[in-house]
Design a binder for these strands. Structure first.
Lengths: 209, 209
DNA sequence: AAAATAATGTAACCCTTGTTACACAAATTA
DNA sequence: TAATTTGTGTAACAAGGGTTACATTATTTT
């Protein structure tokens, strides 16, 4: 494990901290689609992402959902951070977008390291900063963009975090994550295809530009 | 100043920290409507809110805006926190919703206090947590609610932070903050009035329920 | 191979929201 | 007080996106 830890976090943390992480952290692999956190869960460990991508979703009372953002390697979950510290329930849902590798840190260490390591504090603060900015991006999309623009942006993000640049989702799945209906997505996808932006296939989509 | 500091932050911070804040912080009063931060600004001090309310807005490239949330007494601005630490530009706009009193902390102290005071770290973490949750609330509203529901929620928040419980805004101003048009707001306000939820006047609105 | 299931394409329709236009009333200024 | 500006009410229409319904094609199961 130490090697993957060094590769991804070596430039962020001093050696003492890396060694501590190596000692108390547990390595974990999750398959694509694995549900890592549900709304209402109490979180008892903090993940450091080594590889893969995790999608973070919001859900309303009717079960309608909305994609907020993706976590990628080098990221951690700011929501988890606060949940751990405050002992509050999770407000979001986390699902592995691809197969992913992570190091899980027991929450007791967080307070200790925050006092001890400047690099840890900076990491936590920067993590919050990134997450807040991603939330702003999400707000920009739903507040200021029309559905076709949102869709194109969504497809680009999906392609970025996927292994091979293709989007392996059905129209229905896309509709759920954008909180709209399958018919609307099919309609707009066809429009984007006619514009030469994408190529549609059964179960997957490729970007052309 | 020490009294107002104690009243609002005494239960959060230990005495040593309160004394330090008292020494290095500068007291500031701003009138309603005062523009405290614009998008792109570099922020050089962190505010601790003593009284009044600050509204935090997002703006897109066309100058369209959207109300994100209000800061009230006991709050600080998480965005500012990260801007200070990371030396990055502000992503949001902050305007005094009411007359407000604040204590401004020079940013150099933040790193120092984060190492020194557990209560400061907790305050900062909790502040991030609150802001993330408020962003989620905002996302819920724009993603899952219809405009009439958003409007009613907006009116309730406005009334909460105002001195006397009335909403002193024109329909045009409300339209800007919800990122819609004046005609839509007038239409929905009239509907809410007919439902007995509110009473309309020129330049202000009162809630009935 | 036949039947069932899953994914997509598309038409027709409706509702919410956005737009344009204009009337009228209240407040401010000349 | 007359003229102008500001705020509100409302009608008529347009556009985006949500809904229902059904056809077609690909894939999986029997």
């Amino acid at each position: 494990m130490i090697q993957e830890l060094k590769d991804n976090y070596g430039h962020l943390f001093e050696n003492d901290l890396l060694n501590e992480i190596n000692q108390v952290g547990t390595f974990k692999e999750v398959p694509e689609g694995f549900k890592m956190i549900s709304i209402g869960d109490y979180v008892k460990a903090m993940p450091l992402l080594i590889s893969g991508a995790i999608k973070i979703l919001r859900e309303d009372n009717d079960g309608d959902e909305l994609l907020l953002y993706f976590l990628e390697k080098g990221d951690t979950c700011a929501m988890t951070l606060t949940c751990c510290l405050g002992q509050t329930k999770s407000e979001i849902k986390a699902i592995a977008e691809t197969d992913a590798k992570l190091i899980m840190i027991p929450i007791q260490k967080m307070e200790e390291w925050s006092a001890k390591y400047k690099s840890w504090r900076n990491f936590v603060f920067e993590s919050y900063h990134n997450r807040l900015n991603e939330m702003l991006e999400t707000i920009d999309s739903i507040a200021f963009l029309k559905m076709d623009e949102r869709l194109l942006k969504y497809l680009n993000e999906k392609a970025r975090v996927s292994e091979d640049g293709t989007i392996r989702n059905t129209h229905q799945e896309i509709a759920y994550e954008l909180h709209t209906s399958r018919v609307v997505i099919s309609r707009l996808l066809k429009k984007l295809e006619n514009l030469g932006e994408i190529k549609l296939h059964r179960n997957y989509i490729t970007l052309l530009k």
